[in-house]
Design a binder for these strands. Structure first.
Lengths: 266, 266
DNA sequence: CTCATGGAAATCGTATACAATCTCCTTGAC
DNA sequence: GTCAAGGAGATTGTATACGATTTCCATGAG
């Protein structure tokens, strides 16, 4: 229900990974300023599918994947030219990204990709751990038959990906696993909030899997989590999930520290 | 920090309570369609203060106070006429309300005031309890001298308001008390998230104080919370805060049930 | 050399115009 | 009488235009 509001950003076309080379008209890899000559004279009127959402998803992908660097400015006119649209839908898209917390808007300076510093990332993981733990605790008591099946399937898929050492696949299935827990907690609002945070941490979560052996360890944790939920042990599931996420946070800190990539804040 | 993103909606001019009779031009209580003759010919160009935010805050007030009934349609043209502006800033305002979760948008039907049903309110209070509990637990370990002083002052103010049975004052000081806890948890992101939820529940929180003896009991709970934090007992503070909020949720359900105001969902 | 002041350019927020799509109601046939 | 097809109206999403405000840079004085 509250999906409409919270997870509005990046709701559609998120499963299509890869394949985001260029918006539409300018097939060239010309990056930022573009403003190439528009062959088609800008179709006026109401398009079949709203362009604003499309632009939002695309920009979000660029930000989350790190293609757009933190601190980079999102120029309305440039983006508009790049997509072959006017500033109006671009403004709408950027506003939504601001609401989602991926972009900061400075009153008369413009919109900038929000670079999250290490401190803030740790804070966000701390909250994420709490929310996930809560979801797990509630799920242990409230999960239904359908969701239980989904959860099992998601974990099986994780296991399969881990066995074939397919990091990308594991990343994807891991998403599904956690979504399944959110949906099993019997609190749609909590699920939506968790999803929102999850999206916001997506870019950094992906890095974690680079840590050696992380995938295997993650899978083991998943198995313990499912066991707790299946046993109806709410406190146990909460503890497992909390440490699962917290470890991610710590690991991430380790990774960042070792890479000497401070991820500049502003 | 993340105030910019998360609590963007209803960030300013929220402390100014009351004083929201009419937008600007049409002083008449003419409600919806309006479209009265605009004496001033619609100032074009960039206004000193953006009108969109103003409109958003106003609509938010109307929704939160129940002036706009759940399920009511927000007609862009009507709102625009009422404020004496074009559809553009109104669209922006409505989009922000959608992001904030106060309004639902149905693709080709329009925007509708989101009526939060009892079920969803309970869900939100459940999450609120968790976040507040977390903030308290962290605050018990991390609170500094300055914040400790602020917390004590806030509680003293609560006590004073309770003694004089001033419900309005207590409502206000209670806000400050909880804000103080948020700010003491050493996690700015958590503080921002808690504040966001707090705002969203504001309308319903106010009703709670109508319950007999609630104010006195709330104060007692506050005292226990502070005691736990001062003692550095994180788990204790968490438990106290959780039950503090949860009680509010249950009490609220009682209140709603007794008032026979089902608050229809959609 | 530092600081204040002026103007020009960039940028933002809003007004207006317009076309495509959807909804709803009417009209007609079976 | 019921259902389908058609069109008129309403509504939406986007394009374009424009003025006000702000920022940035240059030029000048102290």
């Amino acid at each position: 229900m509250s999906d409409v509001s919270s997870s509005s950003v990046a709701s559609r076309s998120n499963t299509q990974r890869g394949d985001h080379s260029a918006p539409n008209s300018s097939g060239q890899g010309d990056a930022s300023a573009g403003a190439g000559p528009q062959d088609r004279p800008r179709a006026v009127g109401r398009p079949a599918r709203p362009r604003a959402g499309e632009i939002r998803d695309f920009l979000e992908q660029e930000i989350v994947t790190g293609e757009r660097r933190p601190g980079e400015r999102l120029d309305e006119s440039a983006v508009a030219a790049r997509f072959g649209v006017s500033r109006t839908p671009v403004r709408e898209a950027i506003n939504q990204l601001v609401s989602a917390g991926l972009v900061d808007q400075i009153p008369n300076r413009g919109a900038f990709v929000r670079g999250m510093g290490l401190a803030e990332l740790v804070e966000m993981f701390e909250v994420m751990a709490e929310l996930e733990g809560m979801a797990g605790r509630l799920a242990a008591r409230r999960i239904g038959e359908g969701e239980r099946k989904r959860l099992r399937e998601a974990m099986a898929a994780c296991a399969e990906a881990a066995e074939s050492s397919d990091t990308d696949a594991y990343y994807y299935e891991n998403e599904r696993f956690h979504q399944a827990i959110y949906d099993s907690c019997g609190n749609a609002f909590l699920a939506a909030e968790a999803r929102r945070l999850h999206i916001r941490l997506k870019a950094y979560r992906r890095l974690q899997l680079r840590v050696p052996q992380r995938m295997r360890q993650s899978l083991a944790e998943h198995q313990r989590i499912v066991a707790m939920i299946e046993a109806g042990d709410g406190e146990g599931a909460e503890a497992e999930l909390k440490s699962h996420i917290s470890v991610q946070g710590e690991r991430f800190a380790d990774l960042v520290a070792s890479l000497k990539a401070p991820l500049p804040r502003g």
